[in-house]
Amino acid sequence: MAKTFLFELVSPEKILFSAEVESVILPGSEGYLTVMANHAPLITGIIPGIVRIAKSSDLNWAGEGNGAAFVVFDGFADITPQKCSLLATSIVPLEEFSPEDLERRIAQVQEAFNNAETDEQRNQLEDLLHQLTTVRGVYTAA
């Protein structure tokens, strides 16, 4: 039996997921990372991307298969050897994710980029635009 740890996925409104899991793949600010039981302590920023959760195969997850996936937008993860909490500004279950919503977000950021008044604003919006188009690529490959 693989070791498990507590994983919590939290939006500003509520806890969307809280369970013992075997592993979680997160879109960290330095790239995707896999979290497992006994992971070294770490706090990392979260960029827009897909969180993939592998649930323990010996637990009863009626009707849900052996995993779950969510699209997250911005936030951070607090990782300890026993627990991982991911707090994100926006979380959507992958099966409910709308490509049209993503395209709307990309259009909004593109418009803000075009109207940016400073180089700092343009740089931040360019980073966000890159992250969103990366989500588009990851989502279409999923």
Rank of each mutant, 00 (worst) to 15 (best):
A107M: 13
E103T: 14
Q131Y: 13
E30L: 15
N123Y: 04
V72E: 00
Q82C: 02
C84F: 02
D74W: 03
P48Y: 04
P41Q: 10
D78N: 06
T134I: 04
T4F: 03
L42T: 12
A69C: 05
R122L: 01
G28L: 13
I53Q: 07
L9P: 04
A69S: 14
S98G: 08
Q121E: 07
S98D: 08
D74M: 09
P27S: 12
F70L: 02
G137E: 11
E30R: 10
P48F: 11
I25V: 15
I91G: 01
D101V: 15
S90D: 06
I46F: 05
V21C: 06
L9A: 05
L16M: 13
T134N: 13
G67D: 01
L42S: 09
E64I: 09
R105M: 14
L9N: 03
R136E: 01
V35I: 15
E126L: 06
A54F: 06
L42Q: 13
N115T: 07
A19F: 03
S98K: 15
D58A: 09
E111Q: 15
M36F: 13
N114P: 03
F113Y: 11
L102V: 10
L33G: 02
Y139I: 02
L86R: 07
I25C: 08
M1Y: 03
L132A: 05
L33M: 15
E100F: 06
S29I: 10
G45T: 08
D74S: 06
I25T: 15
E117N: 11
R122T: 02
L26F: 12
H130G: 14
E111T: 14
H39L: 10
K3P: 00
Q124P: 00
V21Q: 05
P12A: 02
Q82P: 00
P93L: 12
F70V: 06
A112E: 09
K55D: 00
L59Y: 04
I47F: 07
T89D: 07
S85W: 00
Q82L: 11
M36W: 05
I43N: 06
A116H: 02
F97P: 04
V109I: 13
V51L: 11
I43T: 14
R105G: 01
T89S: 11
S56M: 10
A62R: 11
G31P: 14
Q124D: 00
H39Q: 09
Q121I: 06
A107F: 12
E8W: 07
P48R: 09
D101L: 15
G65F: 02
V51D: 05
V109T: 12
G31Q: 12
D74T: 04
E64P: 00
S29M: 11
A2L: 03
V51C: 03
P48V: 06
